[in-house]
Design a binder for these strands. Structure first.
Lengths: 185, 185
DNA sequence: GTCTATAAGATGATAGAC
DNA sequence: GTCTATCATCTTATAGAC
């Protein structure tokens, strides 16, 4: 297996992530991904024997990249800056119009997904809540850090969905601004 | 067409609503709905020539029922009571474990849905925001009623998704309680 | 309004050549 | 690691009998 940045596996994951963020897990097929990376669908099956394998690999990569970027963006930040960096990172999902957070999409569709994918998505959200909870606690910004962390994650995820549905990205920006004001400004 | 409460059309819509709230639009097939109501899939096609027709009818019914229930539950309520009634009505989606709001699901999947369905979902959210905005204004509960209304809808929708994903209904209840505290308590 | 039958295509997945 | 070829199944949708 090559480590080249454009290795087939990575390109398949890229194509899958872009599409699932827009249309959901069940709307994306192996053939569609194969076409997108100019291979045959048998090659996709070679790398991901079952669709659930692709789903798990995708969420795992998303999870890792998210926290790597979060760490990089908050190296010497105050608690308030950390929370703003978190909201800014969530927003990147909207850059491809109509797309939302990968895990927001899969979380909504949980009831119809393979169990291993559901577990991976749950792990992403638990890590999100733990991270924000630690920041709130560190900054003494909340009297109930875990509840407020959960609310912040829920609000930002809901704002992504609503922005996509209403086709108005400013919905997210205005929501994030008011969350900051109410919860930790 | 009969007006009996169990007419086939209504039973198909019931089955579709239950399933789409759990697994999403693309995971639900006509055959599955036909089996659920004990008819053949050709009968489903008779009532809904295309899947988009079913989607639009479903969202339209959901929209109408939601605002009928909201009106009934807030007949002589104060603004604060109205907002609590709204949050309580949203919560009913969670009664079937793992399910979320029909429009929350379809809003997330917008990028892969037929345009008429997308428009109907958008109409639901716009009506939600307008209703809450009017309540906030009426009760002088916000200095930016429209922005706060949008944030409240986003937060409650996100809380439904997160509660389903984490398989913990208390996530919604705790979020709703804290939204009330920050925004209008 | 529901049925049987079927079309025409997509889907996840596998076997085996290169 | 990618390919061709194929499978069994599912998908939305239609035609026509009852």
């Amino acid at each position: 297996m090559s480590n080249a940045p454009n290795a087939t596996v990575e390109r398949i994951l890229d194509a899958a992530e872009t599409r699932i963020k827009l249309t959901g897990y069940n709307a994306v097929s192996f053939r569609e991904l194969a076409d997108a990376v100019s291979v045959k669908s048998a090659s996709v099956d070679y790398h991901f024997p079952a669709k659930a394998d692709l789903g798990v690999a995708l969420v795992k990569r998303y999870h890792e990249r998210f926290f790597e970027a979060l760490a990089a963006n908050t190296a010497s930040a105050t608690p308030r800056q950390k929370l703003r960096a978190f909201a800014a990172l969530y927003r990147e999902a909207l850059n491809n119009n109509g797309a939302i957070c990968l895990c927001g999409m899969l979380g909504a569709e949980s009831g119809g997904l393979p169990r291993p994918v559901v577990r991976a998505v749950r792990g992403f959200f638990e890590a999100n809540i733990a991270w924000i909870g630690a920041v709130l606690k560190d900054g003494a910004l909340s009297d109930a850090p875990r509840d407020d962390a959960t609310l912040i994650v829920a609000s930002l995820q809901g704002a992504l969905m609503l922005a996509a549905s209403l086709d108005d990205l400013s919905v997210y920006d205005r929501a994030a601004k008011r969350i900051a004001r109410f919860a930790f400004a």
